Simulated scan of single mutants.
Amino acid sequence: MAPLLGGVPHGAALVGPGSEVLAFDTGRSADHGWGPRVLVFVAEGDVAEVEARVAGGLPGRFGGFPTVFSYRGAERRGVEVWEWGAWLRGRLGFDPREGVSALDWLSVPWQRLAEVTQGEVFHDDLGELTGVREVLKWYPDDVWRYVLACQWRRIAQEEPFPGRCGEVGDERGSAVAGARLVREVMRLVLLLRRRYPPYGKWLGSALARVPGSAELAEALGAALGARSWREREAGLSLAYSRAAALQNRLMLAERLDEGVRAFHDRPFMVIGGDRFARALLGSVADPVVRALPVAGCVDQVVDSVEVLDDPVVARAVTAAALGRAAAA
């Protein structure tokens, strides 16, 4: 690429959508929209010139692969030329170089934060790629505590359901409730490990890369494979306790008992996720974050792909969920 740019200051990286950005690609990934790709970032005044150079000078093949390939029914050039701010606003809904508010942090899906902060950087003589990735590599501590608290709250809201469904003979409903909780624990542990959880297809793959996840995976596997609600509850209980122990080791909030207990006077064992949520929220110092309702980031508010794939809609939904406090 460098000869085509003729000395124009630029950044070049493999970021944005695509399983290869997060290193989850396999041979199967090559069956659609596949080819050598790179995004080139230049100043706004250089975009047209560099695009023309790329269009006129890009070889038809590179490394044995075509450099123009079909993607969703349209032809796509593997080299995309962007002004950095325009690309950031299109992917995130804001430009982090202008500052990052609490609403900014909470309105961007985890998948997109991962797509910007991971992937390989090949060149960056402008320094902007490196600077933005450094800013976005992880939440500020108080935002992190808030998101973790909201994740524990999601567990608290449903943790007695597998037992309650099983008690009335609804093992199918218990299995569904249990699987939902498995997903929430997986996301919680990734967040505790300072990893942005990817979207559903790669959630298990991401957890498998986390150091020390084998025992947790065993507990979650037992919950998913259980044939009775009591077995399911046992697997979930072990997973909850391991997540609680991890949080205690990180010293993000006051240390809490890691054991499960009865759900009030009912015979269902729960960790009491609200205990951990309250402890985390109590350790938040930022007044803006402290004022937020316990709703969470956009991934915790909504599952709709139509929302998560549109930064404008994602921001509006998040702002509505957080209310007036989000504007602070």
Rank of each mutant, 00 (worst) to 15 (best):
A279H: 02
L256D: 03
V210Y: 09
G296M: 02
L92D: 11
L14W: 01
G16K: 02
W105Q: 10
A74D: 14
D299I: 01
A320D: 02
R89G: 02
G259T: 15
L238A: 15
V312S: 12
P59V: 05
A12R: 04
V100Q: 06
W202V: 03
F161P: 03
R209E: 14
V8S: 03
F41P: 06
G64Y: 09
D124H: 07
V47I: 10
G27N: 05
G323Q: 06
Y146H: 00
P287I: 10
A55K: 15
R315L: 07
R28H: 12
K201D: 01
D265L: 14
A277P: 01
F122M: 12
L246N: 12
C297M: 09
D142Y: 06
E120C: 06
Y146N: 01
L281A: 10
L191H: 00
F65V: 08
V108P: 05
V81T: 06
G200Y: 14
L188H: 01
I155A: 02
W202R: 03
R242S: 08
A316L: 08
E51F: 04
A327V: 11
L58K: 03
A175S: 13
A279L: 05
F161C: 04
R249F: 08
S107L: 13
A156H: 11
A206N: 00
E158T: 02
A234G: 11
F94P: 01
L281C: 14
L5E: 06
V176R: 04
G178A: 13
A114R: 08
V289D: 05
G7L: 02
T130M: 14
L207H: 02
Q118N: 08
F69M: 08
T318H: 08
Y139N: 00
L191S: 00
Q118F: 12
G99N: 04
V132N: 09
V317D: 07
L22Q: 10
E231L: 11
E80D: 15
D25W: 04
R53N: 11
L250D: 15
A314H: 06
R193D: 14
I271P: 06
S213T: 09
E218K: 05
L190E: 01
W229G: 08
A217S: 13
G18D: 01
E98V: 05
L203C: 00
D303M: 04
P66S: 14
A262Y: 11
S241M: 13
V260N: 04
Q118A: 12
G16N: 03
D31F: 12
W229E: 12
A208F: 00
R230C: 11
W105Y: 09
M251C: 15
R180G: 15
G204E: 06
W229L: 07
L250F: 15
R324M: 12
P66L: 13
W229D: 10
R28K: 12
V135N: 04
V305W: 14
N248Q: 05
A253Q: 13
D274V: 07
P211A: 02
A320H: 03
W34N: 05
V135E: 10
E215L: 09
F268R: 10
R91M: 15
V147W: 00
V182R: 09
Q157H: 03
K137V: 13
L191A: 00
Q247M: 15
V289A: 05
R53S: 10
D303K: 10
V50W: 02
G225S: 02
G204F: 09
W110N: 13
D299Q: 03
R53M: 10
E258Q: 09
L220Q: 03
L190M: 04
L246F: 08
D124Q: 07
F276G: 01
R266W: 15
G45K: 14
E215M: 11
A217I: 08
